[in-house]
């Protein structure tokens, strides 16, 4: 396989919900090693695309190739094991497990003992060191023993990122990683993403245009289920169709970027 081949490619993805077309003929090519942003007004179909790519939803038609392999018919967990791991728009943690345990759940899969109901729990202790290192990367090492539900929101998102990274995904899908965060947290998470992007590909949905403009290599703009523009930040932000799409909504993020 050529390093210039796209890591992920979709062909004419369509998702219809009882007559409503949420995703309409989306064809994407993700360049290996890049940070690719998916933007668009509310309801454009961004999360639905994520659900299709990770198999949480089956497409009505179209195909998905990962590293040249057709994965359209795979089960979600299978796709995750292949190396496409997602985060969720609303923070997805295991609330009544400790922060350390959250990351350990992700690490545990590689140990291959997850069906062993007769094995004592301390067989998982060997993962602690690795888990602590991952927590340190996102500044959570002092919270290791905290019950996750007690973490402030921004920290939960950081934990989610650490958990996703623990699976060492080849392609990481982040659905609005900075949503609902204060200024400082946004900055911290942006830096974490930049760091995480070394040696992997990232596809992220993001409403915050200053984040998008600072880290995304390529931007795809969606509106009402279809792709209306693609290119660098300078290209898409000058595109009249994109400007119109954003002006038609209350979303002022694009203008606020500069």
């Amino acid at each position: 396989m050529n390093a210039n081949d796209p890591i992920l490619e979709t062909l004419n993805l369509v998702k219809e919900f009882k007559g409503f077309v949420a995703v309409n003929g989306v064809s994407l090519k993700l360049k290996r090693g890049s940070i690719h942003a998916l933007i668009g007004p509310n309801g454009a179909g961004k999360t639905t695309v994520f659900n299709l790519l990770t198999k949480f939803l089956a497409p009505s038609s179209g195909m998905i190739f990962f590293n040249g392999v057709d994965i359209t018919g795979e089960r979600p967990a299978q796709t995750a094991r292949r190396g496409i791991v997602r985060s969720f728009q609303i923070s997805a943690v295991f609330p009544h497990m400790s922060v350390l345990e959250n990351v350990r759940v992700a690490l545990q899969r590689r140990l291959g003992n997850s069906y062993r109901f007769w094995q004592p729990e301390n067989s998982l202790l060997q993962l602690n060191e690795h888990a602590m290192a991952l927590l340190a990367d996102v500044g959570l090492e002092t919270f290791a023993d905290t019950l996750t539900v007690e973490l402030p929101y921004g920290r939960k998102r950081a934990l989610e990122l650490a958990t996703t990274l623990a699976t060492e995904p080849e392609l990481m899908l982040l659905d609005e990683p900075t949503q609902g965060m204060g200024h400082e947290d946004v900055h911290r998470v942006t830096e974490m993403i930049r760091k995480a992007a070394v040696n992997r590909t990232i596809l992220m949905v993001e409403h915050n245009m200053s984040v998008v403009s600072s880290i995304a290599d390529t931007i795809t703009v969606m509106q009402r289920g279809s792709v209306i523009a693609e290119g660098s930040y300078a290209e898409v932000s000058a595109n009249p169709q994109v400007i119109e799409a954003y002006m038609g909504t209350t979303d002022t993020a694009l203008q606020g970027a500069h």
Binding site: P76, A80, V85, F88, F94, T167
Partner: peptide
């Protein structure tokens, strides 16, 4: 869903 997304 999170457990699924981690590959279980």
């Amino acid at each position: 869903p999170r457990a699924v997304s981690l590959g279980y």
